[in-house]
Amino acid sequence: MRSIDAKVGTITASVMMAVLMFSGFALAQAEEVKSEDSPAIALLCLGPILLFSLPFVVFGIVWTIVGPIMFLYGVLFSERNMRKRMDSVVLRESASIEHFGKDPLSTLKGTNIVGGISDSGLVYASFVYSPSHWQLLIAWINQLFGGRVDVMHRVISVGRAEAKQRLREQARAAGWQDVLNVRIDTAEMTPPSNPKGTKAVEIFAYGTGIKFG
């Protein structure tokens, strides 16, 4: 499906380019007879092509400048940011545990609850987290030697902790007293068709919030 779409896109783009260029040349040829040197006409002919390529040029310039800066930022701060996020999760977690009186999340189905349940409904929370390219580089070097790839492990566990904490906060906001049957899904944001795309994981936690009867 996707390959067909891509082909259609490519064909359309090339046809458009061809028409543009052809009309440009035709116009230039026609005008050449009347006036020998007219830069305005040449600009008119090349204008659409230039306009079309302008966004790519701008993106290229921004990419060459901002890319290395972001990489450097990753080298310096990605580990620290991760630690900060983990600290904040731990703080918020203790706040919600205080609110609920215990950790509300469980994978139980609720058959163990004695008093009965008066109300229930779905709660869910998601979190998209990406390792920095610096961390990916370290992970790649780690992979060469084999064994534990600790960087990725840390990234994923921070993501999971954050998603779980968001689920607790959602449950608290909706007024549930407990969350049953919690599932945690991890989905890669990088599609197999584009392995060079964004390297991020989406962590999605969901469960059933209940109120005790």
């Binding site: 972001m70 990753g74 996020r85 979190f127 998209v128 990406s130 964004t198 991020a200």
Partner: peptide
């Protein structure tokens, strides 16, 4: 760009 530096991609969340 955010992906290079790492962290949450809020747009995708």
């Amino acid at each position: 760009f955010k992906n290079i530096g790492g962290g949450e991609l809020r747009a995708y969340t």
